[in-house]
Design a binder for these strands. Structure first.
Length: 584
DNA sequence: GAGCACTGC
């Protein structure tokens, strides 16, 4: 490794430090594996295996039937019951993989008759997107005689500490992001945790007294687990890192990354470099363009950085700041376990008829600001399923972005906010800025009878994520969706999306390439095709040429006053974008 | 019809 790379960059991308155990700070925790747990709980009855000769027939049977593919919630429940019946007082912490398991187990445990007197048990879900995360009762000790049972994700592994836990039940899995370089796709799938994580989970039982950890997987699975999780550089898209490498002048991207302790796949690097070229941050020689140099100063993904710049240039900086900050943090929408439909409804209300999750984020944020001014922040957030804490983070981040835009000259604070917000209430313009930032994340909407099917260049057919405001839309008014993220879970989903017009794409998408037969325009290596009469095509190309020239001048000289120098171009753009329902 | 978690400027 080069000595010039700073420590933060190193730890972010080149490996996670193992959890350090400091003797004396925690109490010893007894460790039971699946074979022992089955023996104790008598979870199942009947037959054989040779490795586990010393165990009872029923245990051997269950081990044989044991499948690593999904968490056996029945076994989890049996273990909880065993602890409640046979072990002393103390909170139980259960590690599960996600929302679904937490929700199911919560229902099961609450209806289980071992609970007997429900007043003796406090069962709490704990998940990053559930509102319980901010509630005291997770941390508080329950009254004596009452047992607290917390059903949690990884969040309880290190970010949230519940002191009074004495028993840990570990399913051994967690959802983990990985990157599929072939399909240019992020994946979020359950996988075995590392031994380091398993150790950390166990340690959660020993903060106030000696504890017990019930591992619901065999010892041999534990022994086969990776010692540590794969370093992040092997699991994520690399565009932001590649941009940093250029800005730190660390040499050619490919050869620099090849020197990493665990070098990323060459295809991942190639994908990142290609994306940076597509959005105009790198030139053909892989050198930073003026746009690329500005993006280096913005601490976000290059796409989001571009959205910020374009928002400030085209005078809708407030929406651009809000949406960029929202995309860079977690979603402000919370999902209470039993009120999913109402939560969906609240989100759709903010979206109105925009067919846009990004507009929903924008309107939710603006609604919060307004509610705060009029003193009913709390009730507004409660009624609309919003997290005050997350909205505050978004608000802080927004101001940081504004400072950075001001540092690089794209916003002059002395001129006042209005100058930069002339089109902030013009949703066509805001959607065009979204297109400028999110390109090449474009899906085509193709009508299939009464529904619309969506296609992307890399993976073909994709689905709209069920949490999106666009999930229930059958027919979209406009022919494309731009999206922030494509993720593979149970299917390939586009998460946050916005419906946009041909014109938005033609003005703010990739370069316009004349099609082979000469009477149309192509984009994304021919994946997107536009046809129109010669005269309309000529006008489109001309206006796009003007837009590109204005952008080039502005980016090379951020002090340039678009209101003066680009007045005609911007006016023409706005008029064109408002004409978006005209088909040709 | 589905929502692991973190981090930095």
């Amino acid at each position: 490794m080069s000595a010039t790379i700073n420590a933060d960059l190193f730890s972010k991308y080149f490996g996670n430090a193992p959890t350090i155990h400091i003797p004396g700070l925690t109490f010893p925790v007894q460790e039971l594996f699946l074979e022992d747990v089955l023996e104790k709980t008598r979870y199942a009855d009947a037959d054989i295996s040779s490795v586990y000769k010393s165990y009872s027939a029923s245990t051997r049977q269950s081990l044989e039937a044991w499948s690593g593919s999904e968490t056996d919630l029945g076994l989890v429940e049996a273990t909880i019951e065993y602890i409640c019946r046979h072990e002393g007082p103390g909170a139980i912490l259960v590690f599960l993989t996600g929302w679904d398991e937490i929700s199911k187990l919560l229902d099961n445990v609450k209806s289980n008759n071992f609970i007997g007197d429900p007043s003796k048990f406090l069962v709490l879900p704990l998940h990053g997107s559930m509102p319980t995360i901010n509630q005291r009762e997770i941390f508080d000790r329950p009254p004596s005689g009452m047992r607290k049972i917390v059903l949690a994700t990884n969040i309880a592994e290190s970010s949230i500490t519940i002191d009074d836990v004495v028993y840990v039940i570990d399913c051994g899995k967690a959802k983990e992001t990985s990157y599929d370089a072939l399909n240019k796709l992020a994946c979020l799938l359950p996988s075995w945790i590392s031994q380091a994580s398993a150790h950390q989970r166990r340690g959660r039982a020993g903060r106030v007294q000696p504890g017990i950890c019930y591992r619901l997987y065999p010892k041999m699975v534990h022994d086969a687990m990776l010692q540590y999780q794969l370093p992040e550089i092997l699991r994520t898209p690399l565009q932001e890192l590649c941009l940093q490498i250029k800005s730190l002048q660390l040499g050619a991207i490919g050869s620099f990354l090849a020197k990493a302790l665990q070098p990323p796949d060459a295809l991942s690097v190639q994908n990142a470099v290609e994306l940076l070229k597509t959005i105009g941050a790198l030139d053909d020689a892989e050198e930073l363009t003026p746009l690329g140099r500005h993006l280096c100063t913005l601490p976000v993904e290059p796409n989001i950085g571009k959205m910020l710049l374009m928002g400030s240039i085209f005078q809708c900086v407030n929406p651009a700041l809000t949406i960029a900050a929202a995309l860079a943090s977690r979603s402000p929408f919370v999902l209470p376990i039993n009120r999913k439909e109402e939560a969906d409804e609240a989100k759709r209300f903010f979206a109105g008829d925009s067919c846009s999750d990004h507009i929903a984020l924008l309107k939710a944020f603006e609604g919060w600001k307004e509610a705060k001014r009029s003193g009913n922040e709390k009730s507004f957030c409660w009624e609309n399923f919003l997290s005050i804490q997350t909205l505050k983070m978004i608000s802080d981040m927004r101001l940081q972005f504004l400072d950075l835009l001001s540092d690089i000259g794209f916003v002059d604070k002395s001129k006042g906010a209005n100058v930069y917000n002339q089109y902030s209430d013009d949703m066509e313009m805001v959607c065009a800025i979204l297109c400028a930032g999110l390109y090449p994340n474009v899906a085509q909407c193709k009508r299939r009878g009464k529904r619309t099917a969506l296609y992307t260049k890399e993976v073909g057919k994709v689905d709209i994520h069920p949490a999106s405001v666009n999930a229930g839309v059958h027919i979209f008014p406009l022919p494309y969706l731009v999206y922030s993220e494509k993720v593979k879970t149970s299917s390939v989903y586009i998460r946050d999306s916005t419906n946009i017009s041909d014109y938005a794409l033609l003005m703010f998408g990739g370069n316009l390439i004349p099609s082979k037969n000469g009477d149309g325009i192509e984009m994304l290596d021919g994946y997107l095709q536009f046809s129109a009469s010669k005269s309309v095509l000529g006008l489109i190309k001309k206006l796009r040429g003007e837009v590109d020239r204005l952008l080039k001048r502005k980016i090379e000289d951020p002090k340039l006053d678009v209101n003066v120098e680009g007045k005609g171009v911007v006016a023409a753009l706005v008029e064109l974008l408002h004409n978006q329902n005209v088909r040709y």
